[in-house]
């Protein structure tokens, strides 16, 4: 029994080690996509970027919380070029555990491309849905990733604001 247990543990350790190994070519592609995103919003001041890595296969959701304290227009560039699984982006005004949060906008089946959106358009929609708010200061982006081939994939997000 011990032998089988150690065999099982060994497989798990090897799997873990394999998962943690860097992939130079993959990282280089991600850096290229990040640069493409920066170029898409190059008229803005860089506020930050986030690469969301996931193992495609089963359906999953990843979320990112963002803050916009300035009244200036914020622009967001997203690259899903490294995604083969179906990806839907949902933009909310609060985290999933907040009751009665509002979905501001949804982008369906955006895998395999670069695209942009900004707070001017989001605020317009948001104020229509929730008239008592002035503007978005806090945004939650949800990546809803559908099932697909088992593969290491990533979504790139770059954010900037106008001066």
């Amino acid at each position: 029994m011990k032998k089988i247990f150690f065999l099982l543990a060994g497989i798990l350790v090897l799997t873990s080690a394999a998962l943690q190994q860097g992939d130079g070519a993959f990282d280089a592609q991600i850096n290229t996509l990040k640069q493409e995103c920066k170029d898409l919003i190059k008229a803005t001041r860089y506020e930050g970027s986030k690469v969301t890595y996931y193992n495609a296969g089963s359906k999953q959701t990843k979320s990112i919380e963002l803050f916009m304290f300035l009244p200036n227009e914020y622009q967001f560039a997203v690259s899903t070029k490294k995604c083969t699984a179906p990806v839907t982006l949902r933009l909310y005004d609060a985290a999933a555990d907040v009751e009665e949060r509002t979905m501001i906008k949804e982008y369906k089946n955006v895998q395999g491309k670069n695209f942009v959106f900004n707070t001017t358009e989001l605020n317009k929609i948001y104020r229509k849905k929730v008239p008592e708010v002035e503007r978005l200061k806090n945004l939650h982006i949800e990546y809803v990733i559908g099932s697909g081939k088992t593969n290491k994939e990533a979504i790139v997000l770059v954010m900037g604001h106008k001066a």
């Binding site: 930050g48 970027s49 890595y53 959701t61 979320s63 990112i64």
Partner: peptide, 14 residues
Amino acid sequence: DASVSADDDFMLPQ
């Protein structure tokens, strides 16, 4: 698995 991002992540401002 260090190669997978957290389910709930965040980006802090400059």
